[in-house]
Design a protein around this nucleic acid. Structure first.
Lengths: 167, 167
DNA sequence: CGAATATAGTTATAGTTGTTAACTAGATGA
DNA sequence: TCATCTAGTTAACAACTATAACTATATTCG
């Protein structure tokens, strides 16, 4: 295996003088997947800080919002909407139920399935969390104007909506 | 704990008739963090499919590209640039080295640090992968025009660049 | 009817990833 | 020289995701 720099078998080499601190100028700078990942991590970091005192993780927040929007939704449908696997829903709902935020109600027509509802406490918390999330998004994207933020959102939705449909 | 619907203790409830299949209409639709996550997963799915035959994971690809751009970069700097923890770099580089794609060269001035270089094989593969990645990004974002894609990229970079600096 | 098949939810398991703490070798600076 | 710092490493661990298999109900159809 040859070192590419000279093609000779160098044993001791100086590391490059430049000390890059960003991916500026590299192909990575133009890679959508990479940019999405980095931006997502940055935004999630803010989100997690904002939610820390309520001990709410991103997937829990999403679940709360969906249950609020569709009270009585079954676990299977919740899994579909959030595009996560059914086994993950179980522990997610277990946790919300243990904390008194949500509850399963066995459906009398189909006794296999459970409708999921928010408790009063869950509803109140969800309202509060939605505001925190809104604020957290804005904090995480200070570099963007309100118009840019909306533009970004609409572009992102186009991507994942298209991708969800074609499956 | 009361069920919010009526405030009474319902034991058997019909699940909602509607069967939602997307987050359309919910607050989630307007949450930047959620949209970023979903879009990122969609794009990564394409990426992973494209890279499958080469057995290259996203972080490995990113590493190859950065090493190509900064031959002789130290592991510490690579970690900084990619914003990942030093321990992760170790197994990452181990893997690339075992596969003959990259190699560590001990720096003679500071014998603690290693410069990392691509082998000829690594360089050739990286060239190939960059094209695959480019194509994969385009496939994953068929719903976007070329202009929109560039817009999106610039918005994303603004977010994570700002976030990286302030630390 | 009742046997075969399908579905909702669950459990267990394991692979993968990211995080933290602590260690070694070498460098630096008083 | 001694104390402190840094680069890389190792190991332990927590979190997340995916898969397989199990239970209970439901449905289909001969």
């Amino acid at each position: 295996m040859a070192i590419s720099k000279k093609g000779t078998s160098i044993q001791q080499v100086e590391p490059d003088e430049k000390e890059p601190t960003s991916v500026a100028g590299l192909v990575l700078e133009n890679r959508l997947g990479y940019a999405l990942r980095r931006a997502q991590l940055a935004v999630f970091k803010h989100f997690n800080e904002a939610m820390q005192e309520h001990e709410i993780r991103p997937a829990q927040f999403s679940s709360l919002v969906v249950i609020e929007g569709y009270p009585g939704i079954t676990q299977t449908n919740l899994a579909k909407v959030l595009d996560i696997d059914p086994p993950r829903i179980v522990s997610l709902i277990n946790n919300l139920e243990e904390r008194g935020l949500a509850l399963r109600v066995r459906c009398k027509r189909d006794k296999r399935s459970h409708g999921i509802f928010l408790s009063k406490k869950g509803e109140a918390l969800t309202e509060q969390l939605k505001e925190l999330a809104e604020q957290s998004d804005i904090n995480a994207t200070q570099a963007l104007s309100e118009i840019e933020r909306r533009q970004l959102l609409s572009l992102l939705v186009k991507i994942y909506a298209a991708d969800t449909i074609e499956e």
